[in-house]
């Protein structure tokens, strides 16, 4: 299978977040044309832009860096895989737990809200998502009384 390019990764993530190139550019503080150049591989982002891309798109910076600079891979020694405490894993675990999703009757709309929490990259436990969900649901219930 062909490995994705940096541009493809950025574009895919931007579209998943429902952002236009212009909107993403505004968040990054660059021109929309710069985002277009990055997505079609005509420019490589600077290190500081890479970090901002990571922040805004909720992606880890290191894989982005390696996509932008494949030649650097050889310089980095192999490291053991990090223990699975990363935010992305918590989200995957949450999404993959069909029993939990069904038990809590989580709607697509609610998932959209929770996905935003995931993008902030600060959550490492699926229970955290449930806490947020329940706080919102409680208010919805109050509304209907």
């Amino acid at each position: 299978m062909k490995k994705k390019t940096l541009g493809e990764v950025l574009k895919e993530r931007r579209e998943a977040m429902d952002l236009t190139q212009r909107e993403l550019a505004a968040k990054l503080g660059v021109k929309a044309s710069h985002v277009a150049y990055l997505e079609n591989g005509r420019r490589r982002p600077s290190l500081s832009l890479l970090r901002r891309l990571g922040d805004v798109l909720g992606l880890e910076t290191e894989p982005l860096f390696l996509l932008a600079h494949p030649e650097a891979k050889a310089l980095l020694c192999k490291r053991e895989a990090a223990p699975s405490k990363r935010p992305e894993n918590a989200w995957r675990k949450f999404l993959g737990d069909h029993a939990l999703l069904a038990r809590n009757k989580i709607t697509p709309r609610e998932l959209r809200v929770l996905r935003q929490v995931n993008m902030l990259g600060r959550v490492s436990s699926p229970r955290h998502f449930l806490f947020i969900l329940n706080s919102i649901r409680q208010a919805v219930e109050e509304d209907s009384i």
Binding site: V113, V123, S124, R127, H128, F131, I132, I136, V140
Partner: peptide
């Protein structure tokens, strides 16, 4: 519990949720 302390708060807009 869990990552709770990292969360300080949040604001939910009514237009995008099921809230009135």
């Amino acid at each position: 519990e869990a990552d709770g302390m990292a969360l300080r708060g949040f604001y939910v807009r009514k237009s995008e949720s099921a809230l009135k």
